[in-house]
């Protein structure tokens, strides 16, 4: 579904964030990117979503290369992606309901009524149907992140990208967000997740890629990564965080 070929990204401060990164994601697959801070996990995800422009390399969606120079066309191709941020980024000037309907109405041309129906469906799904008319600032971090997931789902994405979805949350709120993501996995949603929740990654992933200094240095099933890899860096990292 998504093929990433030899992606490179160097920031203006000469930091090489991503080096020759390649990855293929099949439909229905759940892939976790793990690794130390600054290893380029988030940058890869942001390149896929169009929030960063890679210096070289290709990203193909369903076999079609994204033309980075043509921003409008690239944005259209990326419409099949839902993105969930570490800091939620709900629109502060809109109620929860408006957050959920703004894109379906303005981008997909859905009627206000249809968009609201869809929004209620996904709000129920994340357990927040009673918060439809609240402003984001009135919600807890965990609730905001669940709304952010619902907002992405309202665009009916084929793949969901999660950029450290629980890293900004208080410990007691992490579970409610992970449960929502788990529900999506059960539905067969394709996903790429950047996460520091190792046990969660192990539980839900079909494949885990371990990144260091912008490269994938090890990849495999959760069982392989957590139990039988011989890679010292991976072992050392997992020993530290588990």
């Amino acid at each position: 579904m998504i093929d990433i070929v030899n992606l490179n990204k160097t920031f203006s401060n000469k930091v090489e964030a991503v080096k020759d990164f390649s990855l293929s994601v099949e439909k229905g697959e759940v892939i976790s990117l793990i690794g130390p801070s600054g290893s380029g996990k988030s940058t890869v995800l942001r390149c896929i979503a169009g929030l960063e422009t890679p210096d070289s390399g290709e990203i193909l969606i369903n076999g079609k290369t994204i033309d980075f120079a043509n921003e409008k066309e690239a944005q259209k191709q990326r419409i099949i992606m839902g993105f969930v941020f570490q800091h939620f980024n709900l629109f502060a000037n809109m109620t929860v309901m408006q957050n959920l309907t703004v894109a379906p109405v303005n981008v997909q041309g859905k009627s206000e009524e249809e968009a609201r129906r869809l929004a209620m469906k996904y709000l129920k799904r994340v357990g927040l149907e009673d918060k439809a008319d609240e402003f984001p600032s009135k919600l807890s971090g965990g609730q905001q992140q669940r709304v952010a997931i619902a907002r992405a789902l309202c665009m009916n994405p084929e793949i969901m990208l999660f950029d450290e979805p629980t890293s900004a949350l208080d410990p007691e709120m992490i579970k409610e967000v992970l449960n929502v993501i788990r529900g999506l996995v059960d539905d067969g949603m394709t996903m790429i997740i950047v996460s520091h929740e190792m046990n969660f990654a192990r539980e839900i992933s079909d494949r885990i890629a371990f990144l260091e200094n912008g490269r994938i240095i090890e990849t495999g099933t959760p069982d392989y990564i957590f139990n039988s890899t011989e890679n010292r860096r991976v072992k050392a990292f997992l020993d530290k965080v588990l």
Binding site: A49, G50, L51, K72, Q75, K76, R78, I79, M81, G82, F83, F85, H87, F88, N89, L90, F91, A92, N93, M94, V102, A103, N106, V107, A148, R151, A152, M155
Partner: peptide, 27 residues
């Protein structure tokens, strides 16, 4: 306005004008 607001609008497929009119300028 927080950079995340721009990024969220981009990932949802809002055009530049929609992003400005609906999200950024009101804030």
């Amino acid at each position: 306005v927080d950079k995340g607001q721009f990024e969220a609008a981009d990932t949802l497929g809002l055009t530049y004008r929609q992003k400005m009119r609906l999200v950024i300028l009101p804030q």
